[in-house]
Nucleic acid binder design. Structure first.
Lengths: 149, 149
DNA sequence: GTTGAAAAAATATTGAG
DNA sequence: CTCAATATTTTTTCAAC
């Protein structure tokens, strides 16, 4: 789908705040809210807008620790290994990467104890991985909600 | 703020779809929508709900490449170095971590050429960093929208 | 594609238990 | 904290340009 500048402006506003009323968006881009409605619908349809999500503070729901976990996967075990990772609740993202690691996970855990459990009873111990490294996130200096628009 | 199971259910629904009508949430948890409204308001107030965001497909807005970038920061240059990273549009997250790297960035770029530019004219070349490694994301096998609730 | 206006639906507010 | 009822606002639809 081809996006024009108006579409991008709408995306930018909805990315910043998914609850911005169409009427407010319409006012800012000087068009009718029916047009905004129409464009948003088409962008949803086309998959440009993948969804709308509330951002929840992980600490508030009991997850105090974030980490990135680098993994080396043994040859030929990829599918099986990834499938099992996906079943683990604390595993929030599974990226296949170039460089030092085959896979990098983004994980959350309640505390360092439960992270240790996740790693040493959950992941590092799994068949199919030959090496792992846990990089605990001490803090996040900056985090944007999506791509620049 | 202390959350009960009802709050968590509401959070789960809004995390999955921020546009779920309060009336629909109310129906599912068997309460009035005024109650849902009230609880959501309090969770927003308390910062449990940090915001509502449309998830935009990066490819659709021209960002075909994602990468994780590990950086080593020279002693005493932390603040300055991080400040400059924050100014770079393609840098979407800046995590301070334990382990092999002091900082891990999540970056997006239009293509591999522009990623190279970002790295070799933007970041690797910056004062304050002694070492870097770029891990290009070949694919994302799984990605959740927030913490498990 | 866009519009204004009407209809439908949702959210915000109020007052009381 | 929860509710029902009401007021307000937003979303959605649609005939027309």
């Amino acid at each position: 789908m081809k996006l024009d500048d108006t579409d991008r402006e709408i995306l930018r506003m909805l990315q910043a705040d998914a609850r911005t009323p169409f009427s407010e968006i319409a006012r800012r881009i000087d068009m009718s809210s029916a047009t905004v409605h129409d464009r948003v619908g088409r962008m949803e349809e086309a998959g440009v807008i993948e969804g709308y999500h509330a951002t929840v503070d992980p600490k508030a729901v009991g997850y105090g620790v974030r980490a990135l976990v680098g993994l080396r996967v043994e040859q030929g075990r990829e599918e099986d290994a990834l499938g099992r990772l996906r079943e683990i609740e604390g595993v929030r993202a599974i990226h296949l990467t170039t460089g030092e690691w085959d896979v990098i996970l983004r994980v959350v855990a309640e505390d360092t104890d439960s992270l240790r459990e996740l790693m040493f009873e959950g992941i590092a111990d799994m068949d199919g991985f030959s090496r792992s490294q846990t990089m605990i996130v001490l803090g996040t200096d900056y985090e944007a909600d999506g791509p620049p628009i």
